[in-house]
Amino acid sequence: MRKELSDACQKLKIPVGEPNQNLYNGSFTIEGGNFNCAGIVSTSIKSILQKLGIPGDLVRKAAIVSYEAEINVVSYAKKAVVNLMVVPGSVNIEVIDEGPGIPNIELAMQEGWSTADQRIREMGFGAGMGLCNIKNYSDEFHISSEIGKGTHLKMIIQTP
């Protein structure tokens, strides 16, 4: 039994005897409209992933996608829940917001398309690149949205 576990661990590149070391499962909340706090969740995610020993370039990818998503929530939504789940082989980030939703996802995914107001632009965002950056830095990206309810993003970053 011990041998089987050890073989399986080696296959999945999990340190033997510590099968849960690479796992993390937690949630964060983001408050819409609170521009001063934008970035706190992604900073936390970054430090959690660093502590888990995820390689630096992958930590950066995860931090970038969660940061752009966070900026979107602060800019447009009432609030959101961020779920971070780290399993052997991938980092999974889900952002589920309560907000106006996106009427035309295809249009919103086009680089340069933006509904940002002056306040967002003054922060250096709102140039219509957020969702593109999220998509480009994710290995897998899913988006769904319902008008008047909110938007659901799911990003997966593969890890060795």
Partner: peptide, 30 residues
């Protein structure tokens, strides 16, 4: 524009900018 920084800048680089808000620091950290 911080989204340009996020799209193109590489780790270990200097970031030259005219913006001074906290998002510049968050972006640099990310």
């Amino acid at each position: 524009l911080m989204s340009d920084v996020l799209a193109f800048a590489k780790s270990g680089s200097l970031l030259l900018t005219g913006l001074t808000n906290t998002q510049v620091i968050r972006t640099a950290n990310v």
